[in-house]
Nucleic acid binder design. Structure first.
Lengths: 240, 240
DNA sequence: GCAAAAGTGTTAATCTTACACCCATGC
DNA sequence: GCATGGGTGTAAGATTAACACTTTTGC
């Protein structure tokens, strides 16, 4: 067997490799105007002048990777306890003009209504995901990858509720699913399935100020809340 | 709008962040003796003396992230065109005793029969995935995560064929699914489903040298081969 | 009273599961 | 001829998909 080396020795012999920068990028989703939106910022690099990019930052040497993406969210949106999921790490050689930077992509789901950050805030702005054409770096590919993952995940896990206010009607919930999946769903079948899943609690309250018959209001069963850290697996599935 | 800065300037202002090391770790799966195996190496760090770890290496500044994992595979197994899938990036602060190292985990599927690398080769050895208890670093967690992803993926995509020889019987294929999923499958239902998927081509050949009635041999439809780079999505699903 | 969306059930089609007997080969 | 696994079909149950009318509210 080869001679053992200590970790300290290994570190010194590999110092020349400590020259790849590590960043995180967050695809921050929200729901407004019956559309799925993504939060973008004007790029501050000459190379991408006039283009938008995702929100990201270099990972600090003294913070966990997941923590870095929570920090980006906190700094940008002032939100804590946000749903966040790691999706993929992008590491092509020339993805960043500043040099070698690999980035780990996360997506997060936030509720615009709860948020001081409304539709404009310095250089940040919300964009309909279906209308985003081109982004700085490889961020369009990152957005597409995260959107695809979100679509897969919402069929199986009760995570869309992070995009809605505490109380919502079944119609709002269905509109949201339709916006995410990009398909129309049958109303009766949707309602049956979602009730069967037992994700919801009937609040015995009604919508107010709607110009038509008010719908019942529901909330997510509290034990299923997935705000903040580490999402857990369940067995359930909502087939569209 | 904030003043634009050039990429070169941004790089110099962030030099202090270029001190996180980036590695890849490969969970190399193979199939032998009706069990799913994983290739491990004796750790060469004092801190983990006597323990096994996954195969990994630091990413070189001049290679893509994906390429780094292909390189690890090539160097260790002498195999090219191997199925490889990125799973997750692990970036906890203290996951590596040498310092700050984040690692991107991949799993790969190789066919032991085609491989010069047989059951022993210096410090490398194959271990039944169900019998692995403890590994160096956070490698047990990485193994578990990759195994879980593999289990999800084999239900939807024709990837298990990377673990089998070119020609195989339906019994061998079923044994392999059972080994991966850790469940028993009904023989008639399995055969119906797998034939329905249209993944296989009947070779009009029979097993030889079996001590019972020989089974028909099949191969994967060539258009579905997923060796090497980038796997593609299809719609199919094999429910167990 | 009319526009707008809420609420609600049934049927047909499809998919999934459970299950048992005869067949071909090596020894 | 016997042990071993190969090969095959059907029926019951569960799930999914398609589809229309009545109700409640605001105006």
């Amino acid at each position: 067997m080869a001679k053992l080396k200590s970790a300290a020795l290994e570190k010194s012999s590999h110092l020349e490799y400590f020259n790849i920068a590590v960043s995180v990028d967050c695809v921050i989703f929200a729901y407004a105007e019956k559309a799925l939106k993504v939060l973008l910022i004007q790029s501050d690099l000459e190379e991408f002048a006039g283009m938008y990019s995702l929100l990201g930052d270099l990972v600090r040497p003294d913070e966990d990777l997941d923590e870095a993406s929570y920090r980006v969210l906190r700094e940008r949106t002032d939100l804590h306890d946000v749903y966040l999921e790691q999706v993929h790490t992008f590491g092509n050689l020339n993805r960043h003009p500043s040099g070698r930077v690999i980035t780990t992509a996360y997506y997060s789901l936030i509720n615009l209504k709860n948020n001081k950050l409304q539709l404009t805030h310095n250089e940040l702005s919300w964009h309909d995901v279906n209308k985003v054409r081109k982004l700085a770096f490889d961020h369009k590919q990152i957005l597409d990858t995260c959107l695809q993952r979100l679509r897969e995940k919402v069929l199986e896990q009760p995570i869309v509720f992070n995009l809605l206010p505490e109380k919502f009607s079944l119609r709002e919930l269905q509109d949201l699913y339709e916006a995410i999946l990009g398909v129309e769903l049958d109303r009766r079948n949707f309602r049956k399935r979602i009730i069967l899943k037992d994700w919801l609690i009937d609040l015995n309250e009604m919508e107010v100020d709607v110009p038509h018959r008010p719908g019942k209001l529901y909330k997510l069963r509290p034990s299923l809340k997935r705000n903040g850290k580490l999402s857990v697996k369940s067995e359930q599935k909502l087939t569209a």
